[in-house]
Structures are given as C-alpha cells and as structure tokens.
Nucleic acid binder design. Structure first.
Lengths: 115, 115
DNA sequence: GCTATGGTAAACCTCGTAGTTAATTAACCG
DNA sequence: CGGTTAATTAACTACGAGGTTTACCATAGC
C-alpha cells in the first residue's frame, strides 16, 4: 500500500468492519471490547483494525486504567470529501464548479485532481 | 478484499496511480497508452489498474479499432460523497445535519452510517 | 501477592495486490 | 500476406492485509 495520506485514508475505509467501527464511534467514545462486540471475529483482529484506523488518523486513543478508549477523528474524512468534491460536476449534472476548475487550470495545477 | 460496492470503490481509490488516472480522465476520454504515458511502470501494470477501476465502476471502456478508450464514470464517487457526508458534522463544527441524523434514527436506520 | 479483566504482541496461514517480462490477441496498413 | 501498433493474458515474484491462536503485559481489586 502506498503511504500518502489520502491513500492510507481510502485504504482504511475500504473495509466494512472499519466503517462500522467508525459508525459506532460517531455515537461517542468506546472501548475495544465494546467495539468488538458486534463482530464475530477475534479481539486481536479488531485491535488490528483499530491500528489501521489510528494510522489513518481516523481515530485517537486514550488511556483510562486498563481501557484504551477510542474516539472518532473525522479530520481525514474532510480531506476525502474535499477530494471527491472535485468530481462533483461529473455526477450531479451541474457545472457549478466549472469556473473553479478553469481557474485552477490557469493557475497551472496539474496534481491529483480532476481538472 | 470485501466485495460490497463501497469497499471496492474505496479500495480502488486507495492508490495514487489510479487517482491520477481518474484525474486524467476528467479531461476526457483516453486510450491505455495515453493513460500510461505519465508513469514509469509497464503497460500491463496500468492495464491492471484500469481493470480495478472498471470493476469499481469508476471507468467504462469502449472499443474503437485497436484502441480501448476509457471514460470516467463518477457514479460510485457520488456514493462516496454520500457516505462521507454523513460525518460532516464531525469536522466542520456545524450541526446542520443533526436533524437529518435524528430523523434517520427515528426511521430505524442502523446500517453503516455514523448515526 | 493473586487473580480477573482489558488489550496488545508474536507467530503463523492464506489470499489478494502490485509489479515484472514474455507471449498472445486484435485491428489497421501497405 | 506481412508487419506494426494497441492492449491483454499468462506466469511468475514479492509483499502486505486480514484472520487465527497462543502468549504476554497492564491495571484493578481483593
């Protein structure tokens, strides 16, 4: 797997278990065993998923006695929304962003974006 | 890799080469060799990336003589935007979507979404 | 100190991904 | 037909992802 931030984030999201964990954390902090409860897989497997999410910056982990509570950090999701938003013109039938697009061409932007 | 649509889409996007290919296709149709030009990797490698994108529904491929032109299909990106949008309240500091969120709870929605 | 609980680490297995080179198919052109 | 260009298939290598079980560390509570 490539190691740029966006790739790490997308890869972390490419698993329904991890997305379900994020969905659970949207309700609020939770311990590892709480997060693992809905799944049939072993605790170490969940622990690994959490490590992936942590590496992607999607969760942060605290320390309270023997518990390691997880909290959602949606920062990287904003980057995802930003990235995907550049393609919005290609699915919503509107071209509201076309002038942004053209302006960016003029600015000589040639990196990883649709325009 | 899991085979639900969203996972396949996220996995396809978790590679800078593939994102660059999508960015290129946002300019318009292109052949495989055209798409491969910016990269140092071999043509079969690019061909495999295209197969991943095709499987995710992010591109469609035509046929014109010996060329197999690729076109962007942003449909799956709309699903990504939809998914990530449910977390917007967690990064933009506003709670504009909170009532949507609460309404969905009342509708008994318990699937892969932050609320 | 002992034991129970919460969580991670280690070692291992299996499978898919990303890349290579070489061979093959497909279509055009003279 | 023969040759060239476009692209895929095949066979192979290397590696990381996701899962398991077992063993270990850390803290709480008696």
């Amino acid at each position: 797997m490539t190691d740029d931030a966006l790739s790490v984030t997308f890869a972390a999201l490419a698993d329904p278990t991890r997305r379900a964990i994020l969905a659970r954390l949207a309700h609020g902090e939770a311990s590892v065993t709480e997060l693992a409860a809905p799944f049939t897989m072993s605790l170490p497997a969940v622990s690994k998923h959490l490590k992936v999410l942590e590496r992607a910056g999607l969760i942060t982990r605290g320390r309270s006695a023997q518990w390691r509570p997880c909290r959602l950090d949606a920062g990287p999701l904003a980057d995802v929304a930003d990235w995907v938003g550049r393609y919005q013109q290609f699915w919503d039938g509107s071209f509201d962003r076309l002038d942004d697009h053209l302006r960016q061409i003029q600015e000589g932007r040639t990196d990883d974006r649709p325009t």
